[in-house]
Each structure stands twice: as C-alpha cells, then as structure tokens.
C-alpha cells in the first residue's frame, strides 16, 4: 500500500504547477464556446454534436495523452517510477499508483469538459440539460479513466514511451470505424455510449463492458510487463 502511495505522490507532484490547470481551463472554455456555436447552428442536436465531436472525439483523447505524458515525465510507464523504485519501492505497485492518479485526473477533466460543453449546448432553462448531464457524466468519467489507463499501457512500448503517441494516432484512425478493427479502441465504444454508430452492432450495455475490459486489460498489461 505504501508503494502505491509513493507512485501516486510521484504522479501528483508531476501534475503540480500552472501548466496542467491552464490547459484544462482553456479546453473547458473552448468546448463551452463550441457548445454555444452548436446550439446556435444545429439547435436540437447541439448537445450530441458538441459531445461526440469536440469533447469525446478531440479534447478528451488529447488531454488524456497529455496527462499520461506528464505523469510519466515523458518516459516509459515502467521507467517513470525509477525515482522511487531506486529506494526499494515495488515498481508494479508504484506504477499502479501512477495509473490511479492519471485515471482520476483524466476522468475529472472529462467530466468538466462534458459539463462545460452541455452547458454551452443548452440554455440554463432547458429541461433536457439535467437529464443529459446525468446520462453523460458517467460516460465521461469512465471514458476518461479508460483513456488514461490505455495510454499508460501503450507507453510501455518504445524506448521513451513512443507507443503512447501511436495509441493516440491509431485511436483517431481505427477507432472512428465500426468494424472489428475498431473494437480495441476506446473511441469506438465511447461513441456507441453517446448514441453514435456501434462497433459490430454491439448494444450500449456491451460498450460499457468493452470499455471496462479495455481499462482492466491495460492495467493487467502494465503490471505484468513491469519488473518488481
């Protein structure tokens, strides 16, 4: 438990500073503005458009990528905990702590982005605002956490964690489809949960399970590929 805390503290210290909150605030303002533009342009479908495109399609994967890059200090996930592992901390446990902080931060960011986009896409007197918030916040939290775990596992590949970059690119390219090729990518299942085209005609309940499976597989892969 102490080793998990050591990893979590390491990640928390790396997220400290002005840059991370600044990027988050700018992103929140940007998705709010896009939500407002969607409301003025497409009216009834503004919330769906704002969430599928700017928030879950663009801002969330990039923010998750940046958070992962930051908590890993631009290194591979397994080597990112070397600063505490040298003192006898178990790398696997420390890495789990890093992933927890990364997942929590990204999930929180995703929720803030979603709330901001929905407030922009609705008027405050709009009756559907609360129901949309209720439906979307859970999706945002899960998607954010899964993206963080996914990028963490991807950063086990490459000399300096370059797999993270490839995971972002492939998520954009392959996750946009609905064939079997899209199944391993979080983007495809998040889109399904938001009411978009499903992967392999999966129901939405299966999309929840698929996201959970991707998150769990990422954690298992990260821990199993890392020495103690």
């Amino acid at each position: 438990m102490n080793d998990v805390v050591a990893g979590a503290q390491l990640a928390r210290e790396r997220l400290r500073g002005l840059v991370s909150p600044l990027v988050l605030v700018l992103s929140v303002i940007a998705v709010y503005a896009l939500g407002v533009l969607e409301r003025r342009g497409s009216g009834a479908g503004a919330a769906d458009s704002a969430l599928e495109g700017p928030v879950f399609g663009f801002a969330l994967p990039i923010l998750a990528y940046l958070v992962s890059e930051r908590v890993c200090d631009g290194a591979r996930l397994d080597r990112s905990v070397d600063l505490v592992a040298r003192y006898g901390v178990d790398r696997r446990a420390a890495l789990f702590g890093v992933l927890l902080v990364s997942a929590a931060s990204t999930a929180l960011s995703a929720v803030l982005l979603t709330v901001s986009a929905l407030i922009g896409a609705h008027t405050l007197r709009d009756a559907s605002l609360v129901s949309d918030l209720r439906a979307s916040v859970g999706i945002a939290a899960l998607s954010g956490a899964v993206y963080a775990l996914w990028f963490g596992a991807a950063s086990l590949f490459g000399k300096r964690g370059g797999g993270r970059k490839w995971a972002l690119i492939l998520d954009f390219l392959l996750g946009a489809g609905s064939s079997a090729l899209a199944a391993p990518w979080p983007r495809a299942h998040t889109r399904n949960l938001l009411g978009g085209v499903p992967v392999l005609d999966m129901p939405q309940s299966a999309a929840w399970l698929a996201l959970l499976a991707i998150g769990a597989a990422s954690v298992v892969l990260s821990v199993s590929r890392t020495p103690s």
Binding site: N2, A6, Q9, L10, E13, V84, Y87, G88, V89
Partner: peptide, 8 residues
C-alpha cells in the same frame, strides 16, 4: 521526506 518514506 518522499525518498525516506519510499525506503521505509
């Protein structure tokens, strides 16, 4: 302090 805690 972090380093000392890490090595127990």
């Amino acid at each position: 302090s972090h380093a000392l805690r890490a090595r127990g």
